[in-house]
Design a protein around this nucleic acid. Structure first.
Lengths: 267, 267
DNA sequence: TGCAGAAACTATACGCCGTGAAGTTTGCAC
DNA sequence: GTGCAAACTTCACGGCGTATAGTTTCTGCA
C-alpha cells in the first residue's frame, strides 16, 4: 500500500537573510552535543509535519483541500508561519508532488523487484497491477500528480514531477527490456531515434539497459499511456459510468497487451 | 477545428417563483409580434453570453479562470446577476462541460463520417487523430472535461459528462464494429457480458451495432483508454518532458493498435 | 392607459483563500 | 548578558462563492 512519507526538504527561509545556513558549528557548553542542530532539527520536524498534515487534508478532501490556512489551523499556527518553510503555496505543492510521485515509484519498483525470479509476463502484470492498485488506493495522490493539483498551481520548470516521471519511465523501460527478446521483431519499423527522447530520461535508461534500442523506449512510453489512460479514466470516475467491471477491463487490457508483445498470455 | 458554441439552456430562475415560464403568450399591440418572446430571447442571449465569456476565460486562463466574478466583470454585471441564470457556479461548469464534451464528440463523429467510404484502418486512424487534434487544440477544454475542472467542483450524479462520454464511447464502438470482422478471433476468451456495462451505454450502442458482442464493447473502452492515456499525458505536459516527438509516438501507437487488431497497417 | 407583480439586477455582507508588511517573542552564539 | 536572527503573530488587501435584501425595469392584464 506504500503510505506516503516524506523526507525531502526543499525549504525556504524567513524574510530577510538567506538562512537555514547556521554557518558555524558551535559546540554546546555542557552536553557535548552540537546545540546548533537543535533548531535545524525542529525546523525539519516542522517541515515534515506541514507536509504530513497537507497529505492528510488531501486524502480526506482532495488536492483542493490543501490550503495554507487549513494546514496552519490543523497545526495550531498562523497561515503565515508556513511561509517560513515554503516560500509559496506552489512550493509546498511541488514538494508534495515529489513525495507522492516517489511513493508511487517505490510501489511499482517494489512489485518489480518482488517478482525478479519470474517470467516477463508475470513481472509486467505485477508492475501494472501495482500501478493501478496504488492509484486507486491513493486517488487523490494520483490527481495531485497527474491532474491539476490545486487551483492556480503551475508546475515549475523541470521540477520534481519530470524527475519522478523519469523514474517511473525507467521502470517501464525495464518492462520493455524484459519483453524485448520476444517483441523486438514487431517494432522493427519504428522511426524513433535517440534524439527523440529527453536527455534526462536517457541518462537513466541507457545505463540501466544498455542494449535497448530507441524503439523499446518508445514502447515503454506507449505502455505508460495505455495504463495511465485506463487508470486515469477510472480514478476520475469516467469509466465507472460506462462499466461496472473496470478491474475486468484492466485484466483484459493486460492480457491483450502481453499477447501483442508476443508473450504467452499464460495463467 | 470545431469551435465550442453553446445552445443548451439548463438555467435556473431568480429567487422566489419558478419562472422562465411566462405562461400566456400575449400578443403585442401594434407590431403583431409576440412580445412575450422578448424577455425569453434576452434571457437566452444572456445565458449564451455567460457561457461564451466563461469559455473565453477558460481558453485564456485555464479552467481555473472560470469565476463568476470574472465573467460578470467581463460582461459589465455584478457576480450575483449570474445567479439568475445558473443556480450555482457548479451548474455553470456542468453546462460548460456538456457543451465542450459535445464539441469533442462532434469533432470525432465528423472525422468518422468524413471517411465513410474508406477501410477500417483509415477510419480508425482518422477518428484517433481527430481526438488528439481536438484535445491539443482545446487543451483547457480537455482539462475541463477529464480533469478536475475547477477548484471545488464535483460533477452531479449522472449529469452531462457521462451522457457525452457515452456518445464518444458509442463512436468507439463504431471503431470496434469496423475492426470486428478481423479482430473477433483475438478476443474469443473475453469474460465480459452485457451486465458488465452501464445500461445507458448499451441503450446507445446495441441499437447502433446489433451484432456486436460484449467483448467488442470492452475493446472499445480499452481503445478509449489507450488514446486517452497518451493524449492526457501530452495535454498535461507529462509526455513532453520525456520525448520531443509525442506525435510520432501517437502514430506508432496507432500502427501498433491497428496491427494488434489484425488490420493491415497499410497507410 | 395604468398598475400589480415578476424578472433582472445591485448592494452589502460573510467566511473562505494566498500573500505582503510589520511587529513580537524566543533561543542561540559570542 | 547582550545582540541578532529565526519563528511566529497581527493586520491588511484583494479575490473568491454565495446568501439576503433592496431597487429598477419590463410585461401582461384590467
Amino acid at each position: 500500500m506504500a503510505s506516503v512519507e516524506s523526507e525531502t526538504v526543499s525549504e525556504t527561509t524567513g524574510r530577510g537573510t538567506p538562512a537555514g545556513r547556521s554557518t558555524t558549528t558551535g559546540r554546546g557548553t555542557t552536553t557535548g552535543r552540537r546545540t546548533t542542530g537543535r533548531r535545524e532539527r525542529l525546523r525539519a520536524e516542522t517541515t515534515a509535519e506541514i507536509k504530513k498534515v497537507a497529505l492528510e487534508l488531501m486524502a480526506s478532501g482532495g488536492p483542493d483541500a490543501i490550503t495554507l490556512r487549513a494546514i496552519a489551523r490543523e497545526m495550531g499556527m498562523t497561515a503565515n508561519a508556513i511561509y517560513g518553510y515554503f516560500a509559496t503555496r506552489d512550493d509546498l505543492v511541488t514538494a508534495l508532488v515529489h513525495d507522492v510521485y516517489t511513493a508511487l515509484a517505490d510501489a511499482v519498483d517494489a512489485a518489480w523487484e518482488a517478482t525478479s525470479g519470474q517470467g516477463p509476463a508475470d513481472r509486467i502484470r505485477a508492475w501494472a497491477h501495482a500501478f493501478r492498485d496504488w492509484s486507486l488506493a491513493n486517488r487523490e495522490g494520483f490527481r495531485l500528480i497527474y491532474g491539476d493539483p490545486v487551483p492556480g498551481y503551475r508546475a515549475p520548470e523541470g521540477g520534481a514531477a519530470p524527475e519522478a516521471a523519469r523514474r517511473v519511465c525507467t521502470g517501464l523501460a525495464g518492462l520493455a527490456d524484459a519483453a524485448w527478446p520476444q517483441a523486438a521483431h514487431l517494432y522493427a519499423d519504428s522511426e524513433f531515434d535517440w534524439p527523440d527522447f529527453d536527455a534526462g530520461l536517457l541518462d537513466k535508461v541507457r545505463p540501466a539497459f544498455p542494449d535497448l534500442p530507441p524503439a523499446a523506449v518508445a514502447l515503454a512510453l506507449r505502455i505508460w499511456g495505455h495504463l495511465h489512460g485506463l487508470v486515469s479514466l477510472e480514478v476520475y470516475g469516467h469509466l465507472r459510468t460506462q462499466t461496472v467491471s473496470p478491474d475486468k477491463l484492466f485484466r483484459e487490457e493486460l492480457a491483450a497487451q502481453l499477447r501483442s508483445l508476443g508473450l504467452a498470455s499464460g495463467r
